[in-house]
Amino acid sequence: MTSAEAAQDVRSLSPGQPARSRARRISIADQLFRALAAAFAALVLLAVLGVLIVLLHGSWPALKTFRFGFLTSKEWNPVTGQFGALAPLYGTVVTSLIALLVGVPVSFGIALVITELAPAWLKRPIGIAIELLAAIPSIIYGMWGLFVFAPRFAAHVQPWLTDHLGHLPIVGALFQGPPMGIGMLTAGLILAIMIIPFMAAVMRDVFETVPASLRESAYAVGCTTWEVVWRVVLPYTRVGVIGGVILGLGRALGETMAVTFVIGNAHEINASLFMAGNTISSTLANEFTEAVTPIYTSSLLALGLLLFILTFLVLVAARVMLSKLRTRDGVHT
């Protein structure tokens, strides 16, 4: 409002002068331009609000019918009209956790290589190659996962996992079962490959915010490269790294096509990671156009709402973390 008020002042200060109409014309054009830009900015706000309202409105019948049971029931039966979100919710969380478990250390390693180890001429190519990994569409990962990765995974890796980890207490149960190639573990691993570029990019960027003097002081007192990274760089950038990891988690939670190809699409909760499962997004992709009854569609919309809230919370957490780091550095965003 300040510039509008300023324009008002200019007008009132120069009454009846020849320049008046020109000044007014300019200020009207300026206000129009400003209003136009503000309207489109507001459109972004409205879009997200709209998503929330549409999802809430659409899922209302399902939420009213099943109430809290929607979250705790694993029943998903279009014939009897009984719907619960537990199985897809479980699948979403488990595959995303697998993705983080594999993806975080790898991303950390990549960021370390790019910022500390690679010679200057190699930094850009590695960075670009990793970013290209992020540009490949989800559906391509899905095809590759189903036709290329899964058969090899079933033939070579899964039997080995069963032999070596299958008999361990507690964790063993995770690695038992028929080596089918597709299933929760495969989905989690492919998600890991897909979120590595995002996390590695954030980690690289925050590692580069560490002041050179800090790094050099550590080297000067005789730290090894690893000690510099582990004891100086990482503590300095901890908030940012966690922010990046959460950002990766947000991606993993919502990934659709790749998971739909390789998870097996079964509304089940199994102890074994080798078994087929389901995620919220893969359920939506598979069943949305097939939903014939209103309560079925409404339940799917409720799943969508659940996913939106889940990613919303995760993203808010990531933003808060990353902006904390920026405020500390005195960088305004």
Partner: peptide, 9 residues
């Protein structure tokens, strides 16, 4: 939020 919201949503 919109930037990282799942595209299926």
């Amino acid at each position: 939020i919109l930037l990282s919201a799942p595209s299926i949503i």
